[in-house]
Amino acid sequence: MDWDSLGDPSFGEPERLPGQGKPVYRAYGDGRFDVEDFIQVTYQNIWNRRMLGAVRDAYIPQMRFHGSTNRTYYGRGQFQAYILSMMAMFPELALQIEDIYWMGNDDDGYLTAVRWRISGTHRGNGIYGAPTGRPINMWGISQHRIIDGKIHEEWTLFNEFAVMQQIYRD
């Protein structure tokens, strides 16, 4: 066994936020729509548990996604392809929700803002080029328009330039 590889940051699980363990998987409460639980469960299932079927459960078929660098996807299929591309580039990525803010009601719908962090290692091909084995931390915010318990539209922003700086640093 090569004991020198134990210090290699490309091995092992990504570090969590200080004081944080692995994500908690919460179930829906008492049958009432709970915005925070809905967002927590949706993000944990999709990003940390890799359950892409949760996209069908949480988003309407004709959903619209607006992402960094003017990416726009229409429908759950294109959105799932985007998620898969991120997971292919960062196979062990771990997402941590830092804050959830929301306003609205069951009749008019809800608007949410979710601040999150992703950590992972660039191990797959994709829009950021060939794998480098470099660890990354990505901070971002996502906003959602939720009507009748489903996400109709999502806006997600993160600093892609900062991600590329981490991947291609000297």
Rank of each mutant, 00 (worst) to 15 (best):
M1H: 11
W3E: 13
W3S: 11
D4N: 13
G7T: 11
G12K: 05
G12H: 09
E13G: 02
E13N: 08
E15V: 05
L17D: 15
V24Y: 06
R26T: 14
A27H: 12
G31D: 14
R32Y: 03
V35N: 02
D37H: 07
F38N: 00
F38H: 10
F38R: 02
F38E: 13
Q40I: 09
V41F: 05
V41E: 13
Y43P: 02
Q44W: 03
Q44R: 02
N45Y: 05
W47V: 02
W47I: 03
W47G: 04
N48W: 06
N48G: 09
R50D: 15
M51W: 06
L52E: 13
A54H: 13
V55D: 01
R56K: 11
P61V: 07
M63I: 01
F65C: 00
H66D: 02
R71C: 05
T72I: 13
Y74C: 05
G75D: 11
G77P: 00
Q78E: 06
Q78P: 00
Q80W: 00
A81V: 05
A81I: 03
Y82M: 11
Y82A: 07
I83S: 08
M86R: 07
M86F: 10
A88N: 14
A88R: 14
A88K: 14
A88C: 05
L93S: 15
A94W: 05
A94R: 12
L95Q: 01
Q96V: 03
I97H: 12
I97C: 04
D99E: 15
D99R: 14
I100A: 07
M103W: 03
G104Q: 01
N105L: 03
D106T: 10
D108E: 14
D108I: 02
G109C: 07
Y110R: 04
A113I: 04
V114H: 10
R117Y: 02
S119E: 10
G120W: 04
G120Q: 01
H122K: 08
H122T: 06
N125R: 10
N125D: 14
G126E: 00
G126K: 08
G126V: 01
G126M: 00
I127C: 11
G129Y: 09
P131A: 12
G133T: 08
I136V: 15
N137T: 13
W139M: 10
G140Q: 03
I141R: 13
S142C: 06
Q143G: 12
Q143M: 14
Q143I: 03
H144K: 04
H144G: 07
H144T: 08
R145V: 14
R145F: 10
I147F: 07
I147E: 14
D148W: 04
D148N: 15
K150C: 08
I151E: 02
H152D: 09
E153R: 12
E153Q: 13
W155Y: 14
W155H: 13
W155I: 01
L157C: 08
F158H: 15
F158I: 02
F158T: 03
N159D: 15
E160V: 06
F161V: 07
M164R: 15
M164A: 15
Q165A: 08
Q165E: 15
Q166K: 09
Q166P: 08
I167D: 11
D170N: 11
